[in-house]
Structure formats: structure tokens, C-alpha cells
Amino acid sequence: MATAASQVILHPLVSQGLKYGSTTLGRDKLYRTVQYFARFFAWYLLNKGDKIDAARWSALKSHLGTARKCKPIEHLQAALRATLTTGPALEQILTIGRQLAYFGYLSYDTLIWANAIKFISLNPETAKRVGKTSNRLWFAGIVFNLVNGVLKTVRLKHEAKRLRAGKSRGEKDVGEETQRETRLSAIKSAQAATRRQFTIDILDVWLPATGSGIVNLSEGTLGIFGLITSILGMQAQWKAVNGK
């Protein structure tokens, strides 16, 4: 019995899970996954007429949403770092715009959180206006990232094509060939990361679009979209932490 327990407790997968859970981003991705599953499941139960269980899952969703509040200053720092990097000017501008939009979004979201825990008191009309502004800034940040993703995809495609063209001409320099293969490998990884982020953004954009009144998707649809992007985010963070 002790040997079996040791095999379970000391299993590499358990160790990897603990390592993943020890990171702030890892825990946030896990909480987000549960939050959006709860959002979908509450909608599903409510549509079945099970109001009591739906209320439980809705409360879980709200609690996790409150607990997950992030610090806006991190995005302000990221915007400043982006101004110091080199690269295509338009992509740099869009990156800065995204980070500033997220800074504004989370700043307003902090007011919503403070109101939810009764630290400050906003009248219902003001709280609604703050919530809509927060969602509009979130929406703007995602749109900036979507446009940036398109530009980056086109740039990487052209760069990969140029490198392959050099290879097809039969250039014999071993050093140049090694550098070309290394760069092509890096471009391939960057293309995969860009596609993944674009998929996340194209699904996530409907969350603030609905919150700001641009569209009106159901709680079930938003829950599914959020669940998918949360799982994709968890996978990326798991790979970053555990290397596979």
C-alpha cells in the first residue's frame, strides 16, 4: 500500500503539476479555466430549469472572477519595455497600444473589484459605466493584438520565403546555411506561437465585445469561448514551466 501511494504521490506528473501550480500565471490559468467552465455550466443548468445548482456555479464563477484580479502596473511596465525594443515600427506601436489598453482595462477593473468587496461604494449607474469602459479598453487591447498578429504572420511568412529562396539557389557556405536553418526553425516556432495567440484572441474578443454592448452573445457561448482559450493558455504555460 505504501509503495503504491509513493508511486502516485511521487509520480513525475504530480511533480510537474506542483511546479506548474507554484507559478502565479499557472494558478491564474487554472482558475480561469474553472471560472469559464462554471460560467457555461451555470447557463446550462439555468436553461434546464435547475436554478439552485445554477446559482451555486454562478457564485463560483463570480468568486473566481473576483479572486483573479491582476495588477495593471505590470502592463504599464510592459508598454515601457516595448518602447525600448527594436523591430517593425507598426508592430511595436500596436504592442504598446495593447499594453496601455490593458493597463486602462485593469485599472477600471480594480474599481469594479473594490466595489464588489465593499471597499468603495459606487452607485449602480456609475458601476455600470465603469464596467462598460473596462470592457471597451479590454476589447481595444485584443483588437490591437489581432492586428499585430496579422502583421506578424505576414512578416514571418515573407521572411521564411526569402530564407528558403536563398537555400534553393544552392548557396554552399556552411556557416550561412547553419544560420539560415536556425533562423527558419525560430520563425517556425514564432509562427506557431502567433497562430495560437491569434486563435485565443479571436475567441476572447467576444467577451469584452458582449460586455461593452457591441454584440450580445449568450453566457453559454461566452463560457465555451473562455474555456477553450483558458485551456490553450494552460497548455502554453505548462510547456513553459515543464518544457514539454
Rank of each mutant, 00 (worst) to 15 (best):
V14N: 12
S230A: 14
I52R: 05
F119Y: 07
R68Y: 03
N47H: 06
K51V: 06
R155T: 11
L151R: 13
L60A: 12
Y105N: 13
Q197P: 01
I96C: 01
Q237A: 12
V241R: 10
N242V: 04
M234C: 15
L76P: 02
F144V: 03
L184F: 09
A114R: 11
V174P: 15
G213A: 10
L232A: 12
F41T: 00
E159S: 10
T194L: 06
L222R: 02
I231C: 11
Q197Y: 05
V8S: 12
N123G: 13
A42N: 01
N148D: 11
I93T: 05
I112E: 09
L227C: 09
I224W: 04
D28S: 08
L106V: 01
S218W: 00
A140P: 05
I112L: 15
R136H: 15
Q235N: 13
P88M: 05
A4K: 14
G49E: 00
A89Y: 10
N148F: 07
A209R: 12
N242Q: 09
T182Y: 03
L45S: 00
A5Y: 10
E181I: 06
V143S: 05
E125T: 15
T229Q: 09
T133H: 15
I9F: 14
N135G: 14
K118M: 05
R98P: 02
S134D: 04
E125M: 11
I96K: 03
W238K: 15
L203D: 01
A67S: 09
G226P: 08
G226L: 06
K48Y: 00
T194R: 06
T126N: 13
H11D: 11
T182H: 07
W138Y: 13
S218M: 02
